[in-house]
Nucleic acid binder design. Structure first.
Lengths: 224, 224
DNA sequence: GAGTTAATACTACCATACAACAACATACTA
DNA sequence: TAGTATGTTGTTGTATGGTAGTATTAACTC
């Protein structure tokens, strides 16, 4: 399976995206041992771009490189996920308050687009698409609040949370509930009500990991 | 100037630390054009570890690597620094509130140690040492509040702010003022007063960049 | 002389080869 | 048999050569 050449940046970058997607989708399960050589052959490139992609992933704490030993996909840690939620709450609640003060009109339009797309994905039960438009919602919030850098941080935290959420097999009903929470958040922004907006955001982020302890009991081998 | 071999991890990692230090100290000024080849010769290693170090630095947005063109030290952006301050405020104010609920006793001891060291560095006017112990103060706060991940984020943001602060030539009096702010923060934590602690933290972070506009006027070529 | 084109020099990027090191299996010894 | 020494294998880390692409510069045309 050769990776496409001549599009979307360097091979190392594309490979990093591919691996990240696979890790979040749990196709590369937590604890799995990776080998630069093996990945290189699998994707039809040399070891060097693989190595660079793994370095980037290790900075995001999705893999751990042990010198002269090997590279493994990091296991899911409830402890770290709770901390990630805490930090997301701190950042995104601040961002949403800022959004209540001023929000870019063009971003506001994109929010509606993403909500529509979320509803369609939820109805179809398409997890991959839902995740994509969920991400679009949060990144657009950050941009509209004139805080694009927030997404560079929240994106990483969200990716870890999304990976864990893959274990909870969320059906359409759960996804529709998430969309409703998104609607609640943006409604509070429209009403310029920072208290309500922050409360809605904190509630949203709290709900997401609610099913995590159950998932840990079902798949203990994937947790640290 | 060969880089030391056989200590502190891989050559790429050590080189990354060296380059980061040089960038923050403005020895590699914003806008400077870097070359893998040149750095490799300068530090007596091959181009590969240099490349890997630059990739890590580009993820921290300290350098920007333009494909097939070159690599440059990113210029200072007031816009981004203000955003970094906003995000640090969001994170560290949440952390300090958490610290008021529970704080590790052993971390509390290390806080005092770092404060002592800060006072000594401030008295001597040693910027490099002060920065090191200032960093120790904030990382210990995060650890003590059971939020070590917060530092992995705040550390990056702080590094950017520290680079800009190199332009403001802070004398001993400024450093002593910063120490006083630190003391105020930890005093509020000791008193278990989250409101006061958050207020002290926000004040601290606001003060840091106060002299930035003046610095921009003095060194416009270093800014984006 | 202004604009255009070709040659040149530089860059990051990728592939390959080699070195350093750790873990494991195996043979050997007391 | 228990313990030790040693060779083998597999891993990441480093060095080097070659490629594709871009900017610059020089030569050339009008």
């Amino acid at each position: 399976m050769n990776i496409e050449r001549g599009q979307g940046g360097s091979a190392a970058h594309r490979l990093g995206q591919e691996l990240l997607k696979a890790i979040i989708a749990l196709e590369l399960p937590p604890g799995m041992r990776l080998s630069e050589q093996e990945i290189a052959e699998r994707y039809g490139v040399s070891r060097q771009p693989v190595r660079e992609a793994l370095i980037a992933l290790s900075r995001q704490r999705f893999v751990e490189v042990v010198p002269q030993r090997g590279t493994i996909v990091v296991k899911i840690s409830v402890r770290e996920l709770m901390e990630a939620r805490f930090l997301r709450e701190a950042i995104e609640s601040a961002v949403i308050r800022r959004a209540c003060e001023s929000f870019s009109p063009t971003s506001r339009g994109r929010i509606d687009d993403s909500l529509d797309a979320q509803r369609r994905a939820a109805a179809k039960g398409d997890h991959s698409a839902f995740r994509r438009f969920d991400e679009l919602f949060h990144v657009t919030l950050a941009e509209g609040a004139d805080c694009p850098m927030a997404w560079t941080i929240v994106g990483d935290l969200k990716a870890h949370m999304d990976r864990a959420c893959q274990l909870t097999l969320q059906g359409p009903s759960v996804m529709q509930a998430l969309v409703a929470q998104h609607e609640q958040i943006i409604a509070a922004v429209d009403a310029r009500d920072p208290e309500a907006a922050e409360a809605a955001m904190r509630n949203h982020l709290t709900e997401i990991l609610r099913a995590l302890p159950e998932a840990e009991q079902r798949h203990p081998e994937l947790f640290a």
